[in-house]
């Protein structure tokens, strides 16, 4: 009879070494990805920080580097995100309420469901083409803020719907039953109990989707956002530019100084996004603390 140690020759050393190499490999790649963020931020800051001043924030486009600024882009982005919010938030939340609370499991609702998740996977540039043909040409809105805002609203709508649905789904069923049991209709239950309870989650989702809209350049370019705008927009039918668009424009400029301006623009853009993300995290954490379930 063979002894145990003969049948299983000791191979543990080699296996241990392999396991260790694997572990170290995974960890190195992970920390490299983390370091990438640091490299990226360092690289952008080094190039752009010198250009960040009030003059940069408060000037229009110019051929001279020292006189150029992002005033039009900042205001354009502000307008765009406001229009997007006004359109996408009510429609998105309403659609989410319908799907979660009134939808049931009918064929139509399953179709809606699949449709929305497919829409979330459509590239943003395709939304730009939709906006160009539908809003700019067929509706004859021209390359206006309204056309841009509507395009971005369609773009973020699936994201708003999906995030709102998750927040609504997280509201415990017992609260709904409690309201039904004292003779509330479905809408009363939703209006007074489900939506208030889901509000922090919905808010977080909305902020994150709007921050996506702020960073989008492709659909804006397709819809016809201009780069050389020398006025502040006064109304939704005005022509416009946006911060990401100005960044793109400066990045592709052969002069290095303009590329540095792009970096300064990126710093502003990242600050805005950071603020929005921080507020989303804050809302989420505060809600988690006060939530009874």
């Amino acid at each position: 009879m063979t002894r145990w140690s003969d049948r299983f020759p000791d191979n543990l050393r080699a296996r241990r070494i392999k396991a260790r190499i694997f572990r170290i490999g995974c960890s190195v790649l992970t920390w490299l990805s983390v370091a990438l963020l640091a490299v990226l931020i360092y690289h952008v800051t080094r190039a752009g920080i010198g250009w960040l001043d009030w003059q940069f924030l408060n000037s229009f486009w110019s051929r001279r580097v020292t006189e150029a600024g992002i005033k039009a882009g900042l205001l354009g982005t502000l307008w765009l995100v406001s229009i997007t919010a006004v359109l996408a938030i009510p429609i998105g939340v309403a659609a989410a309420v319908y799907l979660e609370e009134f939808g049931g499991r009918s064929r139509v609702n399953r179709f809606l469901d699949i449709n929305i998740s497919n829409l979330a996977g459509v590239p943003s540039i395709v939304y730009g083409l939709l906006g160009l043909a539908l809003f700019v040409r067929w509706c004859q809105l021209g390359s206006s803020l309204l056309a841009g805002g509507m395009t971005l609203a369609l773009l973020v709508l699936p994201v708003v719907i999906i995030a709102s649905r998750e927040a609504i789904l997280a509201v415990p069923k017992s609260i709904r039953l409690a309201a039904f049991a004292i003779g509330a209709t479905r809408w009363q239950t939703v209006r007074y109990h489900v939506l208030p309870a889901a509000a922090p989650g919905i808010m977080t989702g909305i902020i994150l989707s709007l921050s996506r809209a702020i960073g989008e350049a492709a659909p804006i370019i397709i819809v016809g956002g201009a780069t050389m705008i020398f006025f502040t927009p006064e109304g939704p039918m005005d022509e416009f530019t946006a911060l990401p668009l100005q960044i793109y424009n400066w990045t592709t400029d052969p002069k290095q100084q303009f590329q540095e301006l792009a970096a300064a623009g990126i710093l502003v853009l990242l600050c805005v996004l950071l603020l929005m993300n921080a507020s989303a995290v804050y809302i989420r954490n505060r809600a988690q603390k006060s939530r009874p379930w």
């Binding site: 990805s33 990438l36 963020l37 490299v39 990226l40 690289h43 952008v44 190039a47 994150l208 921050s211 996506r212 702020i214 960073g215 989008e216 350049a217 492709a218 990401p244 960044i247 793109y248 990045t251 592709t252 590329q259 792009a262 970096a263 990126i266 853009l269 990242l270 996004l273 993300n277």
Partner: peptide, 16 residues
């Protein structure tokens, strides 16, 4: 990293 706008990555690619 996932939330950084893609135009920023374009800048990063070209200049770094």
């Amino acid at each position: 990293l996932a939330g950084i706008p893609t135009v920023v990555y374009g800048y990063f690619a070209l200049t770094y």
